[in-house]
């Protein structure tokens, strides 16, 4: 039993890693007052570019950088449209997702080698493999945390750092001020537009890195729609974690856990129809969302940035 739980926990952490990166990225973006619904597209683009990079260069480091670069480009488009051009952020984010989905599919059929009909699907490349930490990986339960790939280990560091930066540094204070009340932040001498650009782009880089974990570690290789809606689930996870990076872990564990249980049940040949199991993450997202909104309604302290999804122009109310 303990062995089974340890193995489910290990899969949970693996499945949750991409969610942790993307959730923290989107928390930073939303904390600056910018809502980016382009996550699904950015994760897909991160996944396809990182896999293509690792296939041709064999370098995982380059693959990760390539994903982050693509995340930077796409989130800059969103930043430009929603900050400078003051476009509707919902529609701008949606268009990033629509474009990213289409373009990732295009690249997946174009970047591959000629002998595979230029398809990336079905190819095998380098991948992040679990590194067992001697002495710790054998311990029941706890061991699950110490038999993971490098990108998962990095999340153990990123979560506390992201929390510390947001709540304990001056930059973090400024970030929260910009997202909560840009007029006051401006009066305090903070450059609202620059701050928003910075964290929208930083967030986009982390989101794309989450996508890279899918194609480099969780399900190595490229398949159409490899994210399966994770980009959208992350937007719910941001609400679930009340815009606090330290809580990003719980949502990611819950949804990673649903994935893991699903995986286990399917492998053991259960009577429950596969389509019902596959429905679970999406149903759980809706339920989590309703519960969180309920809590917010009766207990106001949930932490949504005051100026989320509104554009800012000096001298305008």
């Amino acid at each position: 039993m303990i062995v089974l739980i340890t193995s489910i926990l290990a899969i949970t952490l693996r499945a949750g890693t991409s969610l942790v990166y993307a959730t923290i990225g989107e928390i930073y973006t939303e904390r600056s007052g910018i809502l980016n619904l382009g996550l699904e597209g950015m994760m897909l683009m991160g996944a396809v570019t990182s896999f293509a990079t690792v296939y041709y260069t064999g370098s995982l480091a380059l693959a990760v950088l390539a994903a982050m670069f693509v995340g930077m480009i796409l989130s800059s488009i969103h930043a430009f449209l929603s900050i400078t051009m003051r476009a509707n952020q919902v529609v701008s984010g949606l268009s990033i997702t629509l474009f990213g989905t289409g373009f990732a599919s295009f690249l997946g059929q174009r970047l591959g080698p000629a002998e595979n009909g230029k398809y990336l699907i079905g190819l095998i490349g380098e991948k992040f493999t679990p590194i067992a930490i001697p002495g710790l990986s054998g311990v029941p339960l706890i061991g699950a945390f110490f038999n993971q790939d490098l990108l998962t280990y990095i999340t153990y560091l990123i979560i506390p750092i992201a929390w510390f930066y947001m709540y304990k540094t001056k930059n973090g204070l400024n970030l929260r001020a910009v997202g909560d009340n840009p007029q006051t932040a401006d009066a305090m001498g903070i450059d609202v537009l620059k701050t928003r650009y910075l964290y929208t782009i930083l967030g986009g880089m982390l989101v794309a890195l989450g996508g890279a974990h899918l194609s480099l570690a969780y399900a190595p290789g490229w398949t159409e729609n490899i994210t399966g809606g994770r980009g959208w689930i992350v937007i719910a996870l941001v609400i679930f974690s009340m815009w606090n990076p330290s809580r990003a872990i719980w949502g990611a564990l819950l949804f990673g856990g649903i994935n893991a249980v699903q995986f286990r049940l399917q492998a053991s040949g259960t009577d429950i129809p596969a389509s019902f199991l596959n429905m679970l993450p999406y149903l759980a997202t809706i339920i989590a969302l309703v519960v969180m909104t309920w809590i917010e309604k009766y207990n106001k302290k949930i932490g949504a940035p005051g100026a989320l999804a509104t554009s800012y122009m000096r001298g305008e109310k």
């Binding site: 430009f80 509707n88 268009s95 629509l98 989905t101 289409g102 295009f106």
Partner: peptide, 24 residues
């Protein structure tokens, strides 16, 4: 031409960017 059919999706996806910029 052996181009991916996703070509149409790329074109569609590109349309909204200038649209949004133009709404200003």
């Amino acid at each position: 031409m052996g181009l991916p059919a996703a070509m149409g999706l790329v074109l569609q996806g590109m349309i909204l960017f200038p649209m949004l910029a133009g709404s200003l």
